[in-house]
Amino acid sequence: MAEKTLEEIAAAMKGIDIAMLTTVTEDGSLASRPMSNNGDVDFDGDSYYFTYEESRMVADIEEEPAVTLGFAGDDGFYVAVSGDADLIRDKEEFEAHWNPDLDKWFEDGIDTPNIVMIKVEADRLKWWKGEEAGEFTDF
């Protein structure tokens, strides 16, 4: 295992906007979908994503909060994160993680009806780049 700090891994993650968010469905199947970090990529063990209340992933998380995130950089840098997801419906929390790029998906900003923020709290992060690899479990 290579020795890199979480800060070094977070810096490398800044260039990766899209993560594949995987949830467990009601029948135990896995469901994945691309989610944008929307520029909120100062990774410290927590990740934030916005979606609509009626989405399947919200229903999945309400039943089973265990999720995974997969990131793939153009330079052969890969990250897998596992943890638990929380659903946040507080507008003050939305403001802390809002980016103007989100306005194209949520036209009324944080006042968009039925918006919800997903907070993923990591319990494990594994990364790879070429023959180097490492893991974090202490956030």
Rank of each mutant, 00 (worst) to 15 (best):
A85E: 00
E8K: 09
L87V: 02
T25R: 13
N37H: 10
E107K: 14
E54A: 15
W98L: 01
D42F: 10
K126Q: 09
G70S: 10
G28E: 01
N99S: 14
D84N: 10
E64T: 13
E62N: 08
A80W: 12
K4D: 06
A66M: 12
E7W: 07
A133M: 15
E95Y: 04
I18V: 13
T112R: 02
G45T: 09
L30R: 11
I9D: 05
D138N: 13
K129P: 01
F43R: 03
W105L: 12
L6G: 00
V24W: 00
M57L: 14
L30V: 03
I9C: 08
D75E: 13
D84W: 01
K119F: 08
E92R: 11
E62F: 02
S82Q: 13
D86H: 09
G70L: 12
F43Q: 05
K119Y: 06
D86S: 15
E64W: 04
T68C: 11
T68E: 12
E8F: 09
E54V: 15
T5M: 12
D42C: 07
D40T: 10
A10P: 03
I18A: 05
V116K: 06
W127D: 01
D138G: 09
I16M: 04
E93G: 05
D123I: 02
L6W: 00
E132H: 09
E62M: 08
L102V: 04
A10E: 07
R124T: 12
D40A: 15
K91G: 03
A72T: 13
V116D: 06
A11I: 05
M1A: 12
P65I: 08
A2I: 03
V116C: 08
Y48N: 00
H97P: 00
T23C: 08
E95C: 08
L102N: 02
D27I: 07
G45K: 06
L21N: 02
Y78V: 03
Y78I: 03
T137N: 10
S47P: 00
A19N: 08
E62I: 03
K119Q: 13
G76L: 11
G70E: 05
A11K: 14
M13F: 06
T68S: 15
S36N: 11
D17P: 02
Y48P: 00
I61W: 00
G76K: 11
A96Y: 07
G73P: 05
G28Q: 06
M35F: 11
F94V: 02
A122E: 04
G28M: 05
P113V: 13
I16T: 01
N114Y: 15
D46G: 00
D90T: 01
Y49V: 10
S29L: 10
M20Y: 12
D46K: 13
E54Q: 14
S36G: 12
E107H: 15
T137Q: 07
Y78S: 06
F136G: 04
A11M: 06
K119N: 10
F77G: 01
G83T: 07
N37E: 13
A85M: 01
F77W: 05
H97G: 04
T68F: 02
D108N: 14
S29F: 14
K91T: 07
A72F: 14
L21M: 12
V67T: 02
K91S: 07
E93N: 11
K129F: 11
D60L: 04
D75Y: 06
G134N: 06
A2P: 02
D27R: 12
L102H: 00
D86K: 09
N37F: 06
D74G: 13
Y78H: 10
E26Q: 14
I88N: 03
E121W: 01
D60W: 04
D90N: 10
